[in-house]
Every structure is written in C-alpha cells, then in structure tokens.
C-alpha cells in the first residue's frame, strides 16, 4: 500500500517530518499554478491519481 511520503509530490515539514505538503502543478482554462495541501506522511495514497513513486 503506497504512502504519501513515498511520492515525488510529498515535501516533509522540517519541524514535523510525519506531516508534509502535497504539491501539484495544475492548469485550468485561465491560469497555471502550483497548489499545496497538508497530508500525513503515512497517509494511504492507493487511490490518489497524482501519486508518483519517488
């Protein structure tokens, strides 16, 4: 079962490596941007369509 911390998009926090930011590139019809959302390092990412193994 893959975990968020195994993903290329996962950037652990310095003060708490058990949590991190899931960072993704997104492009909508008007603009392009990077987005981030906090996730737990051991979060199950089996159903995540953005998962990319490190």
């Amino acid at each position: 079962m893959p975990k968020c911390e195994e993903c290329k998009n996962f950037f652990p926090w310095e003060d708490n490596p058990r949590k991190g930011d899931c960072v993704e590139r997104a492009v909508d019809p008007r603009q392009a941007y990077y987005k981030a959302k906090p996730v737990n390092a051991d979060q199950d990412s089996a159903d995540c369509s953005s998962f990319q193994k490190k």
Partner: peptide, 19 residues
C-alpha cells in the same frame, strides 16, 4: 489547499482553487 499562480508576486485566496 493553497496555490501560487504563475507570474504572481502576491499570494492568498479564500477558496482552495482559483475558480
């Protein structure tokens, strides 16, 4: 969720995505 739009110098929005 937060985001940074390309070319922007100021950041922050109420919603999770621009739309």
């Amino acid at each position: 969720t937060i985001f940074i739009t390309d070319h922007s110098q100021l950041v922050g929005y109420l919603g999770s995505l621009p739309n």
